[in-house]
Nucleic acid binder design. Structure first.
Length: 855
RNA sequence: GCCCAAGUGGCGGAAUUGGUAGACGCAAGGGACUUAAAAUCCCUCGGAGGUCUCCUCCGUGCCGGUUCGACUCCGGCCUUGGGCACCA
């Protein structure tokens, strides 16, 4: 052992040791409780960044800790290897995506291995390998057979310069992220997964995931966006046609003063055909379409519309109301048509104001002066809205309103429903509509089906062919995988690269044997990451699903679900929602048993430097490789864990890293100093044989065990766990053993420190563990438990307050009687001075804590 | 606009159920060792004031409330960060 701590001399050696012994490889063992610890797998960009270090350090502490608690821990890693960057590298540097990816994986793997993480490398997966993506294809076919994968026309982001589809994330301020060209909307045939079939279950289970952060669940709930209401048919005047609308405010049906249609609504052209309105309406529709859905849904453009010349009839009261086309109505949501209630919907209010359309008040606030028994009408309503009139006076009938009243209240001017509270009115009107056949109750979701088609090369080929005779035909299971051809020219232009590959494109129809062509789109890479955690469960990475068997595989049955999942908050919705969806689909296919993939979720904060997220473009990157070179893996891990609790953002600090390094150096020096003397005394020192500083150190050791254990168990607050270990090391540093018993306690404390530290800084812990004479690896040592008896202090500090202000401190034996405490407090010198000549009103005693003398 | 977090020293952050605010670390200042520096070790370290080893007052974004006692609970604001955003 060298005098000075030099991580270079030890870390590689221990990494090799763990690898050779295969200590992190696991197999299922029904006699042992399992623990599945998983960090979100990386995209092989070529270099790890501090976010990875933090993520993996957190996961590794948990995995190593649980292993020492005797659990059968599976802690796998792999590569999210398909994706656009590989294709961009091909475009820019002419390197094949497969080669680029492979080289990056090699590079990143060696970087990750330098961190000394406890991965079961034997289970490593690579989503770009045919062994993996064949199961993407297999799952796709199973979903296709069940109608969960389907094809339809859909509007996509299209860059006219790059001639390719862009994902929403790749559109920045309406422009292509690569060439700055304005992105347009284009109708394309796309494959979709029917995630909406699972909307209700995905939403419902949000309340059954206690191990998930509340804000992630809230984000998912908002994303799913359930809303309950009714669909109502409004007959079109002078025609057989009916206009179906969706509303959640059926209680305002008596306040409808016009209708608004989405420009894309098919009835628009029917209504205006051959009328004098046709030209204006078509022009407006075209103009709106050109805006693109991104801009239209941004809320930034002004509400505009045009009258169609037609009228609809309100089925409840027979009112005839004009039908307009409005740019803010979306075809994708509800029915693409809405009833407009300017008095109670702000958007309608603004629209009505602009075009001079009337409003009708049908809800008044329950706080307004009118009693429920005789609801107000006409002029009286206006009196109850004594708002100053302003620029909105063109909204006839609501001249005194500044804005729509969207709140709850009492229904007025609503025929037989007048006088009801809104909640009750909603129910009654919904039932009435169903009874009269005007429409039906309806639940709508904001969640859309998941479009998975990508006009790109580096992804899983969608396993279908198009046959002129048979139509869309899925590839039979036995012919999987559909291999992604290697010989492809990638230009970044002209849509799907695969459509240029003749040998891939041309095939025979599996059904009729005739000529057919293959689908040339590939799958969204989110498909790959939607079930990879299940793939890890298979021995030697040999994935095997069997839908005929209908009984889940033994391995997945043992390991799933993931007990602890750790990753960035940026995946709060997409990846985590898709993974939940896939789990449910796979359950329904009989492949696995559980409803949810991740029992507990930890969303770690970002790594920040100089007030901003570390990123290449900001130039505030800290390279983990440099850090490991300079300080070693243990210091890098330690700082990531010590600087902040995992869920919070971590502010980078070069000096903070120095601090972590110094701590390990002090521990090293301490053990180096005592190494020889610790070999002397054998046997254990019992708590009762101890006194003075030896006893104090023994107590502190036990307190530290408790603190570290609880901090890990409760909420993974490693920063405070490490702080308490630092305190213990500080105490040892000022400890001066005077007896063999003292030395025995010191040895015990050193051992405990190393065991407690080993999940955080495994290399130095192994090394020092060996230095003090242990033969077996520290990994195999059981996590210590604390001696409850030893925790107790001989004296407890009792704080004395006079009227809530701290005035003195006394030490008393624990659990002293209130009377004794009072007496001691009152006679304390300083306290006595404060209360002298004053009348004591009350004395509050909190046992073992404090006395408050109120004067 | 709506929803959700979070505001504590010069900085990162501590503070079980309301009970000593500032653990631990960093930075800073002083000292030791050294020819010198680095490294290491020791001391001080929220602010103001005083009769300065000790004591007083103020202090956890702001204003109020509950309580013997509030960083912690309640009400109302302000600021920052994140998510959603014409979803009918």
């Amino acid at each position: 052992m060298s005098e000075r701590y030099d991580p270079k001399k030890i870390e590689e050696r221990w990494q090799g040791f763990w690898l050779d012994k295969g200590v992190f490889e696991v197999k299922e063992d029904p006699s042992k409780q399992k623990y599945y610890c998983l960090e979100m797998f990386p995209y092989p960009s070529g270099n790890i960044h501090m976010g990875h270090v933090r993520n993996y350090a957190i996961g590794d502490v948990i995995a190593r800790y649980k292993r020492m608690r005797g659990l059968n821990v599976i802690h796998p890693i792999g590569w999210d290897a398909f994706g656009l960057p590989a294709e961009n590298a091909a475009i820019e540097h002419g390197v094949h995506p497969a080669r680029w990816t492979e080289e990056n994986i090699d590079k990143m793997k060696s970087q990750i291995k330098r961190l000394g993480l406890s991965y079961a490398w034997g289970r490593e997966i690579n989503t770009s390998s045919p062994d993996y993506y064949r199961w993407n294809q297999w799952l796709f076919i199973k979903m296709f057979e069940r109608g969960l994968a389907y094809k339809r026309k859909s509007s996509v982001n299209w860059c006219p310069s790059c001639e390719t589809v862009l994902a929403n994330e790749q559109v920045e301020d309406g422009r292509c992220w690569r060439c700055d060209t304005d992105v347009i909307q284009k109708e394309l045939e796309q494959w979709f997964f029917k995630i909406t079939d699972y909307a209700e279950e995905l939403l419902g289970f949000c309340d059954k995931l206690p191990g998930w952060p509340e804000r992630v669940l809230t984000m998912q709930k908002n994303w799913i966006g359930k809303s309950e209401g009714v669909e109502v048919d409004f007959p079109v005047k002078g025609s057989e046609k009916k206009l179906r609308i969706f509303t959640t405010r059926q209680d305002t049906l008596y306040g409808v003063t016009f209708m608004s249609l989405a420009p894309e609504h098919p009835i628009v052209s029917e209504l205006v055909r051959g009328t004098s309105y046709e030209k204006d309406v078509i022009e407006f529709v075209e103009k709106t379409k050109r805006l693109g859905s991104l801009l239209r849904t941004s809320g930034e453009i002004e509400k505009e519309g045009v009258f169609t010349g037609s009228y609809a009839i309100n089925p409840l009261n027979g009112d005839e109301v004009p039908i307009w086309v409005a740019n803010f109505v979306l075809m994708e949501y509800g029915t693409g048509a809405i009833m407009a209630v300017p008095a109670h919907d702000q958007r309608d209010f603004e629209f009505a104001g602009k075009y001079g359309l009337p409003a009708k008040i049908v809800i008044i606030s329950a706080d307004s002066p009118s009693p429920q028994s005789s609801p107000p009408r006409g002029e009286e309503i206006k009196r109850n809205f004594p708002l100053p009139s302003g620029e909105r006076e063109r909204v006839r009938g609501a001249e005194l309103m500044e804005s729509a009243y969207e709140g709850e209240g009492i229904m007025v001017d609503s025929g037989p429903f007048t006088g009801l509270r809104t909640e009750e009115g909603k129910d009654k009107i919904a039932s009435f509509i169903e009874k009269e056949g005007f429409g039906e109750k309806k639940v709508n979701y904001r969640l859309r089906d998941w479009g998975i088609s990508r006009q790109r090369y580096w992804g899983t080929p969608i396993p279908v062919v198009y046959c002129d005779r048979c139509g869309i035909v899925a590839i039979p299971e036995k012919d999987l995988p559909v291999i992604l051809p290697v010989d492809v020219e990638i230009t970044g232009k002209g849509g799907s690269p695969l459509s240029e590959v003749e040998s891939f494109l041309k095939t025979d129809c599996p059904k009729c044997g005739g000529a057919a062509r293959r689908e040339t789109d590939t799958m969204d890479t989110f498909v790959d990451s939607s079930w990879y955690f299940i793939a890890y469960c298979f021995k030697n990475g040999k994935i095997e699903f069997n839908a005929e068997r209908r009984t889940p595989n033994e391995e997945t049955g043992y390991w799933m679900p993931v007990d602890q999942y750790i990753g960035g908050i940026e995946h709060a919705v997409l990846h985590l929602l898709y993974a939940r969806f896939f789990t449910k689909v796979m359950r329904d296919l009989g492949l696995i048993m559980m409803d949810e993939p991740f029992s507990n979720l930890l969303t770690q904060g970002m790594v920040i430097k100089d007030g901003a997220k570390m990123s290449k473009s900001k130039g505030n990157i800290v390279d983990p490789n440099y850090l490991i070179d300079k300080y070693g893996a243990d210091t890098s891990r330690l700082f990531s864990l010590f600087a902040a609790p995992p869920e919070k953002d971590l502010e980078w600090s070069d000096q903070g890293v120095e601090g972590a390094y110094r701590f390990l150096g002090r521990l090293w020096a301490l053990i180096s100093r005592y190494k020889e003397r610790l070999k002397g005394p054998e046997g254990k020192a019992g708590f009762n044989d101890l006194y003075g500083q030896g006893k104090a150190l023994y107590r502190k050791t036990n307190q530290t065990i408790k603190k570290v254990t609880n901090d890990i168990e409760k909420d993974f607050h490693f920063n405070t766990a490490l702080a308490s270990l630092m305190e213990l090391v500080n105490m040892m540093n000022s400890f001066e053993p005077e007896s063999n018993n003292d030395l025995r306690v010191l040895k015990k404390t050193i051992e405990t420190t190393l065991i407690l530290l080993s999940p955080f800084a495994p290399h130095i812990s192994e090394e020092l563990w060996q230095t003090i004479g242990h033969k077996e690896s520290i990994i195999l040592v059981a996590w210590p438990s604390w001696d409850e008896e030893a925790l107790k202090e001989e004296e407890v500090l009792i704080v004395i307050q006079v009227s809530g202000k701290l005035r003195g401190k006394i030490y008393l034996p624990p659990n002293s009687d209130d009377g004794i405490i009072k007496e001691a407090a009152l006679s304390e010198k300083k306290v006595a001075e404060f209360i002298k000549d004053k009348e004591i009103k009350k004395i509050v005693v909190v046992r073992n804590k404090l006395v408050n003398i109120v004067i």
